[in-house]
Design a protein around this nucleic acid. Structure first.
Length: 902
RNA sequence: GCGGAGAUUGCCGAGCUAGGAAAAGGCGAUGGAUUUAGGGUCCAUUUCCGCAGGGAUUCGUGGGUUCAAAUCCCACUCUCCGCACCA
């Protein structure tokens, strides 16, 4: 469709408000949602899949008679918008370039600088991109009810979020506790992936070390280890002679570690105090006691110790660490390996050093260490380890760690998995927050309710049900508030902002009564919990409110009761273990019955030209660009028919061109269409039956959300059938006339613009196809006999072709002998067993062909006779058809005529 | 590590949760048609054998169940994805 036509329908749909439904208790409702977009930029080809699927479902449900609510809002919570705005203020070149590229698509060059300037205020970014996204969505023909739009930053909505947290708190699901996070000391703030340099490409996570204390006469050394179970194999300690070491006092003990270790430790434990610097010479001069043992070990200098990793002190276990072992050998240190882990296979420090010749090939060191580590962890047993001997490494590690902690012989020491700095260059470490707020998803009653819910919901595709149940089991405590970012203040502690995923777990309910809630908020400047308890839970209102408030509350309650229960939510796989899990858990915690979620559709990833969509690959294609270059219908067709919903969809030129080809074949037909005469010729009757069979398949597939299959039936198959009409010498206009209205209706969910345009041109200029319903009772419009006839004809053609293929003669003529009375009589009499004598000679031939004979007999002679011209032109042969009147050695059977070519 | 998904004919990709098709569809390739010049459209072919519609061998590897398995069961090999404050 030309852009101007799509724009025309976009505007006329909006003007006529046909997608803004009212509650109507006489009609069944269907409430479908997709995640609200985050407004820090414009959307690209990948984002559109979920939204397009949402619109297809919404339009389809409308078509089949439901009162459909398909709303949309915008997510503004969290840190990214703030971070981007800040980076723009700081003049970050990459960020400026990024936003210039967004703006250059939508704005005139002279306006860009002014708008960019306005982005120094974060709210302007959110406002700008929500406008842009609305425009894109309208251009794509989405049948969204924009009258219910709101954002997560809207004050009325924040009242709902607070209410939600209050509900969770009343159910005992809000907790406080300590929690390790990535942190920047200089910025005095938590950092997320977005704040870390290369954080999106090279992920930083938190690793838990055991900081083991080795007691000396004056102080203890703390060595950080990932393998506390090797403590019985310690032969010495390593420190880096050129690093700085400090002493801190913690729980009455003097502990020494590297300066950087001290800094981290003090961010992870409360009451850590600096005492003095300690020169490395002083440390090396002393001996220290190994935990659980009376033995003392010395401290050796080693340059390989990194003072910025862990505590800058490591204990040496040459029996189980390749690094230590090699360092021993290189420096001629007396080798007194202690073995504390036994494995069955011949994998050990010595064997690996030999196998990879590690003394010379240091590049294999890491791999070899991994190999050893794995082998010992999974197959190792502790030996020479006191009362831990005999335990598996896996169990022993936990037990030893626990005992050391209980006896104040070790403390947890968190470290990042790689060295990281923020985008502004300050160091990222792990800090422990002692008063972090959590939602506790672990109570048994909640898990049970959630599983019950998951098992009662519909899943498309079904395999995600299991994944969802696993995610429910896996959820424990979820930190639910942060110290910064856009969002709602935690009602019990206003210093905290509710974390951005936790504020969006039940938000879809506000679509049902957004306008009433907003009115109440505007009127009272708040929405009291009592009012929300009434609207959302049906509890009695105890406090006294004025009539305006109560009237809106009653209306809001009615809207909520009619609409709620999110019948289908459509989203993508990365949401399963977070957003969707919370969505399910929070609903299970607060709601019950029909207000619980009804179904989930999870669509697969979209890639672009064979690669993951990313700026660095240069394959980001914005939705606007697509609309401009290809048209909305083509994008929608590709999204729907390009791949099954669960599988990966690759946006690429090649597949696109075949979609465009089919689409223009379609528009060519409809542009040229003018209603033909009524005609009930064989081929038109056939087409009509074939069409309704396709429509039946379409409906069945749509009902089970097999969107791709349904469109293959109604789009591709119908067009192939039209070709078949032509090759029979038929006329497309005549064939289409009786089915065109239904065809356009069925196509309207996926290519609404074309469907709307042709509906107005060819069917009815005074109504919208987008607002029609379709008659689902179609079985009586399918004549299965005629479908069988056509099927038979095609089988005859392919049989003849097969013969032509292998006989190398110059064929002129085919004689087709179809079954006659004799064969018919035989087939009727044979099952009874009392055949006349003359028929008995047929038994052998019958047995040979038994499996290929049609059980239902059709009038093959007439079918071929009526379509002789078609056969002749397809095969380029003269065709003669005769009906068998005798018993032969080789007989024609129903569905298996005899063919003779000469 | 935990959890999950998958290995199909040149390629991509259905079918595999009701076991009975050399296995949909697309792309590519080959041949043909079209007012006959190779990028358009249409038709046919595309595992192997076959001068009559037939036969043989295929769906990661190796076993098993069954009259019958790409489809069910077991083992093995390999590949991919998610994992918490990030929206």
């Amino acid at each position: 469709m030309e852009r101007s036509i799509e724009e025309k329908w976009r505007d006329r749909w909006a003007e006529s408000h046909i997608f803004e439904p009212a509650a109507d208790t006489t009609r069944e409702k269907f409430f479908v949602t997709v995640p609200w977009p985050y407004t820090n930029g414009s959307l690209h080809v990948g984002h559109g899949r979920t939204y397009t699927l949402g619109d297809i479902v919404a339009r389809y449900k409308r078509l089949t008679g439901y009162n459909v609510l398909f709303p949309m809002g915008f997510h503004e919570s969290g840190t990214p918008i703030l971070a981007f705005s800040e980076r723009l203020r700081n003049g970050d070149k990459d960020t400026i370039r990024l936003y210039m590229s967004y703006l250059s698509e939508y704005e005139k060059p002279e306006d860009i600088d002014r708008i960019l300037e306005s982005f120094r205020e974060p709210q302007n970014i959110a406002d700008y991109f929500s406008r842009v996204i609305i425009k894109d969505f309208m251009d794509l023909g989405y049948s969204i009810d924009w009258s219910r739009k709101f954002t997560s930053a809207d004050p009325f909505y924040q009242e709902v979020v607070k209410w939600q947290f209050n509900q969770l708190n009343e159910k005992g699901l809000i907790k406080r506790g300590s929690y390790p996070i990535l942190y920047s000391i200089r910025d005095e703030n938590a950092v997320g992936e977005d704040d870390i340099k290369d954080g999106d490409t090279d992920k930083v996570s938190i690793e838990e070390f055991t900081g083991v204390l080795f007691r000396g006469e004056k102080y203890s050394l703390m060595a950080a280890s990932l393998r506390p179970e090797t403590i019985f194999g310690v032969t010495n300690l390593w420190i880096n002679p050129s690093a700085g070491y400090e002493m801190v006092r913690y729980r009455g003990m003097d502990i020494v570690m590297s300066s950087s270790g001290c800094k981290k430790f003090s961010m992870q434990h409360e009451g850590v105090q600096y005492v003095r610097d300690v020169p490395s010479d002083e440390i090396v001069a002393s001996e220290f006691q190994v935990p659980f043992s009376s033995e003392k070990v010395g401290v050796l200098n080693a340059e390989f110790v990194d003072p910025d990793n862990g505590t800058g002190i490591v204990y040496s276990v040459p029996g189980h660490s390749i690094f230590d072992y090699i360092y021993y050998n290189k420096n001629g240190i007396k080798n007194n390996l202690k073995k504390v882990v036994k494995v069955d296979r011949n994998v050990s420090v010595e064997s690996l050093v030999e196998k990879y010749d590690l003394e010379k090939n240091s590049e294999r060191l890491k791999d070899a260490t991994q190999e050893l580590y794995k082998e010992e962890f999974y197959n190792g047993t502790l030996i020479n380890s006191g009362r831990y001997s005999g335990m598996s490494v896996e169990a022993g590690r936990e037990a030893i760690k626990r005992e050391m902690q209980e006896k104040n012989l070790a403390y947890i020491f968190y470290e990042t998995t790689r060295k990281a700095v923020t985008r502004s260059g300050s160091e990222v470490i792990v800090a422990v927050l002692n008063d972090q707020w959590f939602i506790d998803y672990s109570p048994e009653w909640l898990k049970e309710k959630a599983h019950e819910l998951v098992n009662s919901m519909k899943f498309y595709p079904e395999l995600y049900r299991k994944l969802m149940n696993d995610a429910v089991d896996w959820l424990k405590e979820r930190p639910c508030a942060r110290r910064r970012g856009i969002g709602t203040k935690l009602p019990f502690d206003e210093r905290w902002v509710i974390e951005s995923l936790s504020d969006s777990t039940i938000y879809m309910l506000a679509y049902t009564n957004k306008n009433e809630l907003e009115s109440i908020y505007a009127h009272l400047k708040k929405i009291p919990y009592g009012i929300l308890d009434y609207i959302l839970l049906g509890k009695e209102v105890r406090e006294k409110y004025d009539e305006y408030t109560m009237e809106n509350a009653r209306k809001a309650r009615d809207e909520f009761r009619y609409w709620y229960g999110n019948d289908l939510r459509i989203t993508a796989p990365p949401h399963i273990s977070n957003h969707l899990a919370f969505y399910i858990m929070n609903h299970a915690a607060i709601f019950s019955g029909k207000e619980l979620p009804g179904g989930l559709m999870i669509s697969g990833l979209v890639i672009s030209n064979g690669a993951k969509i990313s700026k660095s690959k240069g394959n980001v294609i914005s939705l606007l660009e697509i609309i401009k270059h290809y048209s909305a219908d083509i994008y929608r067709l590709f999204m729907a028919a390009g791949a099954d919903i669960s599988s990966l969809l690759d946006w690429n030129e090649k597949d696109l061109s075949s979609v465009i080809k089919r689409y223009s074949y379609f528009t060519d037909i409809l542009d040229a269409y003018s209603p033909g005469d009524d005609d009930s010729n064989y081929i038109y009757s056939w087409f009509k039956s074939a069409f309704y069979r396709n429509l039946k398949t379409y409906i069945a597939d749509m009902e089970s959300m097999n969107i791709r299959d349904s469109y293959i039936a109604i789009f591709y198959n119908v067009m192939n059938d039209l070709r078949n009409v032509e090759s029979h010498g038929g006329n497309i206009n005549i064939a289409l006339k009786p089915v065109l209205a239904d065809w356009l209706k069925a196509l309207s969910p996926i290519i609404p613009f074309a469907a709307e345009e042709y509906w107005h041109r060819h069917i009815d200029n005074n109504s919208f196809v987008s607002a029609q319903t379709i008659d689902m009772n179609i079985d009586n419009r399918i004549d299965y006999n005629i479908l069988k006839s056509e099927n038979y004809l095609n089988r005859v053609i392919s049989d003849i072709r097969e013969i032509l293929k292998i006989i190398h003669i110059d064929a002129k003529k085919a004689t087709i002998t179809v079954y006659g009375q004799k064969q018919k009589t035989f087939l009727e009499e044979y099952p009874g067993g009392n055949l006349d004598r003359e028929y008995r000679t047929m038994i052998g031939d019958y047995m040979k062909n038994k499996n290929r004979i049609d059980t239902e007999m059709i009038d093959e002679y007439s079918i071929i006779e009526a379509n002789r011209k078609y056969l002749e032109s397809s095969l380029k042969l003269d065709i003669t058809v005769v009906k068998s009147d005798s018993i032969q050695k080789k007989n024609p059977w129903p569905g298996r005529p005899l063919i003779e070519i000469s």
